[in-house]
Design a protein around this nucleic acid. Structure first.
Lengths: 172, 172
DNA sequence: ATGTCTGCAAATCCTTTGCATTTTA
DNA sequence: TAAAATGCAAAGGATTTGCAGACAT
């Protein structure tokens, strides 16, 4: 995938995790400091997420694991835990697929989704028009994009402060 | 909702359909020219979509209809037909909800999704930074945005031209 | 040792499908 | 009236839940 091609700007450089601690240690530390246990399935799933470094479905992740590493249900449960912790981020795409990607540093980036095979790759780039041009130059066809904004609307802010001042954190 | 407030730039003006034919007639004409039948459930669903003029779930739309207007299954089937026709567009948001919105003129616009109540409104505006500022000025809190790009990747283009030259049109 | 996680099985939820009946053109 | 669309019931697939046993701390 493009995002792991060495030195291919402005698509991902593939060395997002080469700072100090290894990404898996970083992730485990986050688990530990949240009072959660470092189990074999959790480590395996985190490693799979780190290896991909791109959004993947639960099924895909489960297949990535050693055939008997853990049950599919465990993958569901672990990803729910990781998401709550902020260790992974869930992305939704045009086709409705909800995919998980590792998120160790809250880096903001975009994705390019293949309309044909659904392959998802990370993009580190400026916005929209220049990006679309760049993608076409790289051989992508029928390039479009999706932009959505998220925020807490005035009504909800009011309700939140009226009842419990710390209510609106990460709602539906 | 904001998008229907008269003359509230740059959020939607609410008069997107005040040209010549009424939106429902326009939609029915599109059905007819596609060789499809104008049935009572279809008209009711289209009217509900037009009334909202914002993304809505299938359940929401079904509830919008007169209690016995049609079966939930029919709403599913009609929306699938409408989508194939391009009469509606399906949007996916951070929470995984797949919502349908009417699309009579292929106008390109964005959405603001409330992180708390999930309410979705249309935005007619330029991109990202100025938009986020504008939303904050209007009282939205914790404003973020999501950008995704879509296109057919080089690999799929190759495969498509090798096998059947007109294959890649609107895949998954 | 003990409270947390996991595996398995079964429940639940959303969506799709089959087929007889109704409706549109 | 003939083809297309709908309603109802039931199937299907993905995700969640309950609970006994296994595992990290």
């Amino acid at each position: 995938m493009i995002a792991s091609t060495p030195s291919s700007h402005p698509l991902g450089s593939g060395k997002e995790f080469s700072r100090s601690a290894s990404p898996i240690d970083l992730a485990c530390a986050r688990l530990k400091s949240a009072g959660l246990r470092i189990t074999q399935p959790r480590v395996a799933i985190l490693e799979a997420l780190i290896r991909r470094n791109a959004p993947a479905s639960i099924e895909q992740l489960h297949r990535d694991l050693a055939s008997d590493a853990c049950d599919l249900v465990t993958v569901y449960r672990c990803l729910a835990v990781f998401e709550e912790l902020g260790l992974v981020r869930r992305c939704f795409f045009h086709n409705g697929a909800g995919l998980y990607e590792i998120n160790l540093d809250d880096s903001h980036h975009y994705h390019i989704v293949c309309k044909s095979c659904g392959k998802v790759e990370r993009i580190d780039a400026a916005l929209t028009d220049p990006t679309e041009r760049m993608l076409r130059e790289r051989g992508y066809d029928q390039v479009t994009h999706l932009v959505e904004f998220f925020g807490v609307c005035p009504d909800c802010r009011k309700k939140a402060t009226e009842s419990s001042p710390a209510a609106v954190i990460s709602a539906p």
